[in-house]
Design a protein around this nucleic acid. Sequence first.
DNA 1: CGTTCTGTTGAAGTCTTTCAAATATAGTGG
DNA 2: CCACTATATTTGAAAGACTTCAACAGAACG
Lengths: 248, 248
Amino acid sequence: MTMQVSAIRSDDTPDRSLPRFGYIGAERGCGGRGQQALYDDLRALDRFSARVRFAKNETIFSEGDKAGHAYKIVSGMVRLCTHTRDGRRQIADFLLPGAIFGIIDRGEYGFSAEAVSDVVMISYPRSQIDRLSATKPEVIDHIFAALTDQFMVMQRHLVVLGCQNAKERVASFLLMLADRCNAMPGDRIDLPMGRQDIASHLGLTIETVCRAITELKREGSVVVPTLNQIILKNLRALRMLAEGQHYC
Amino acid sequence: MTMQVSAIRSDDTPDRSLPRFGYIGAERGCGGRGQQALYDDLRALDRFSARVRFAKNETIFSEGDKAGHAYKIVSGMVRLCTHTRDGRRQIADFLLPGAIFGIIDRGEYGFSAEAVSDVVMISYPRSQIDRLSATKPEVIDHIFAALTDQFMVMQRHLVVLGCQNAKERVASFLLMLADRCNAMPGDRIDLPMGRQDIASHLGLTIETVCRAITELKREGSVVVPTLNQIILKNLRALRMLAEGQHYC
DNA sequence: CGTTCTGTTGAAGTCTTTCAAATATAGTGG
DNA sequence: CCACTATATTTGAAAGACTTCAACAGAACG
């Protein structure tokens, strides 16, 4: 979650020099400054903002609802998903603290947002955002940057769903998550979402996700201290899975 | 390709009353007015625009290239794709006449664009678009609408890749295409792209796409007069496949 | 501490891919 | 215009990957 993280940390922190997981998504950092600026600009919205909280698994809004608010996550995790007519579900993305969502949608939300864990967020009335956009062109610019980031996230995910097998998908997912958390190699990474959520994100069944993780454990690529934590041990192996065989 | 079509036809043409394929994507028409307006606004760019043509299978630009131009398709079809390190390829979308692409990207293009058939386009320098955006806030607004549309396209495709089996994917693809062409039930729909392109779009192999089409033929859901044309015969059956079993 | 939910593993079944071959289409030069 | 060659599509058969179903294990919670 490069964009979200960079919205939190001070922009001049040059942690780009530190070792990173090198997930393809890392390039997305270029959108970071935009996010930081957006964050600053949103301060102008403070007097209209409200602190809201949602309990684990609570629905924040549903696809088709009138898009009245945009949200910025303070703590916890949110999933954006689409529910199909026949009960299937596709999780488009998981959002970490710092992430902003609900700004893309005009009129109606295009997807549902649900709390993965207990979540605290700031809500901003869309009307005020639109008003601010009209007076401050740079705000638009930064929202644009956020959009571009989101686009790249989705596009990368299209590749995952369109081209990768189960193990590759799980590896991609873990690397993406590690990168978004700004985790360092060896760090414990939080997995607030359940296995079923991971499955719904990766277009697999829960069993297949389990088996893939088990295999990664067996190979020594990852260690799973608790159900909701994971440590990436062999980055090279994970990257080879996620980014294709040619990787060195 | 609702947005593209609506960019071509006069905006007050109420063809929404005509029978349509009813692909889920049809709702996307809400972005239509934005596209129409964008189209008008782009006229202000005319003196900077250039007519360009690309031959079938020619690369228009590659992922990572400096994003110097945005394009509007006049005729022909363009595919937007991502090439992975190990040679695999994911086609994110096929674009029809009226479609505008290359506006989202800042600095570098985030994907490659290739001509599916011989293509004629209008190219607009990004610098001029940015300049125009600064002076005309409504332009931004319309580009935004275009972005929203593109987002919905990608999101719908995520569901296709994440939740559907081969036959469902092909059905979704055909309905989407029919809707974008603004085709009426019974019309011949052009398939300028080869089977391999369809496969790369749907995350399947070419053989599986063939088999799925063959099966749809056998069931009488479609008729395939030539390799590059298809007629949707049984919309109800196709929709049931694409939108889930609950569809009446 | 028992109940319930979530996660893990095993085995069988299904769907898709892979590999191979045949057919059809498109393109080219005579 | 036809024959020929190259390319693309279709079909078949076997292999492989993922899913499904079922049972078990483990964590969470009252």
